[in-house]
Design a protein around this nucleic acid. Structure first.
Lengths: 213, 213
DNA sequence: GTCTATACGCAGATAGAC
DNA sequence: GTCTATCTGCGTATAGAC
């Protein structure tokens, strides 16, 4: 017998895990306000009381989901930024790391961004749970400025380059409903497009940064 | 006496307008599920009953807001795509059109994208309210392919180029909470960054597309 | 730990006077 | 058109038996 792909349906898993897995699906797709505790309970094969037994309140459950969804990714990115790679390799590595995390769970980007927009105070909480993030950003900025000074890349501000990398990488997940309709793409065709971003995005960025000969 | 900037507070405006203006603020920031009818009513200087008198239900009110927020922009973009400009000018014009629409109302991008993610069926409704959108997309794709064939730009698929233009243009509005914290930018400094996108984005794209000499 | 039953509040929606 | 008062259902959360 094949294992169910969704942990929420795996009756073997410990109760807390089943709840978290079910909660993820609902919070990612409907947000904090839109999700319903009884639906989460049903998907986890339990009733509402158990949710409150394991996680005191809806907000606590939401916090657990949000943290679980973002933490490993944040830590990877900081590690990457602190690492020894030269700028262009860091860019490529970031794109690949992002796609590896998000392709299996394509709702995460919208979930993260809308949560941070609706509750900006959570950004502070997240940073507090991300050691060395400030050092990572400073190293990024420094290495962009150095590359510019050395003439390796065209002049660009670190904020703008970071924005460009991020925007190009996540747009496919955020604008999915729009892009599939506009270009009339099947789910399979769209999955292929997302996979192509792995090469398309770094190539686009590195071309844009290439200085005149 | 200066006119209040927010139409919701303008006691002179017709009631329906005041409701819509107040509703926009709430739906943009909290979404359909998170917004509260009595809060919208209070901001419009009315009570809940009036909201239901003018707009039968919460969903109807939401639809009106969503349409109002997206329609003029959609129509502009289609007009632009159907127009006579060469590809590179179309890209620049798109960026500027987008920024003109969104800079004064920076919550719109997240509002639009989360709405379409949570209720993908609305994409169909939107398309039905956007005449010639299909022709616009086809013309875009054709002109990208022609430019590639003529060697004016590096080879790239139309979906990818469209994605890149969109991602680079809207990321600043979507990732605002993240970027301001990471790079420690004041609201004024961040506003300046967004304004710089007007030049930064087209320059980045045109560099990326530049074929080898 | 897991359940059933229930408390409690609040949100959306309506009735009906003015 | 605008209001006050009210209905109704539903959603979170708790009590308490097993």
């Amino acid at each position: 017998m094949a294992r169910p792909t969704n942990a929420a349906l795996d009756q073997q898993a410990p109760t807390a895990e089943r709840i978290l897995a079910a909660a993820r699906d609902h919070f990612r797709q409907k947000g904090l306000a839109g999700a319903r505790m009884h639906e989460i309970a049903a998907d986890a094969g339990l009733n509402k009381a158990m949710l409150h037994y394991y996680f005191r309140s809806k907000e606590d459950l939401f916090d657990a989901v949000f943290r679980h969804d973002t933490e490993p990714f944040r830590l990877s990115v900081v590690a990457l930024m602190l690492g020894p790679l030269p700028l262009r390799d860091k860019i490529t590595a970031f794109v690949n790391t992002y796609l590896d995390f998000v392709l299996p769970q394509p709702h995460i980007p919208v979930f993260m961004l809308t949560t941070l927009t609706q509750f900006p105070e959570r950004m502070g909480v997240m940073m507090a749970q991300t050691p060395n993030y400030r050092k990572g950003v400073e190293l990024w900025s420094a290495s962009v400025r150095e590359a510019v000074a050395r003439g390796e890349i065209r002049p660009i501000e670190p904020v703008h380059l970071w924005q460009n990398v991020l925007g190009l990488t996540l747009i496919g997940f955020i604008a999915r409903p729009m892009l599939t309709r506009l270009f009339d793409l099947s789910p399979e065709a769209y999955a292929a497009v997302l996979e192509q971003r792995r090469h398309e995005v770094p190539a686009f960025i590195l071309n844009a940064l290439r200085p005149d000969a």
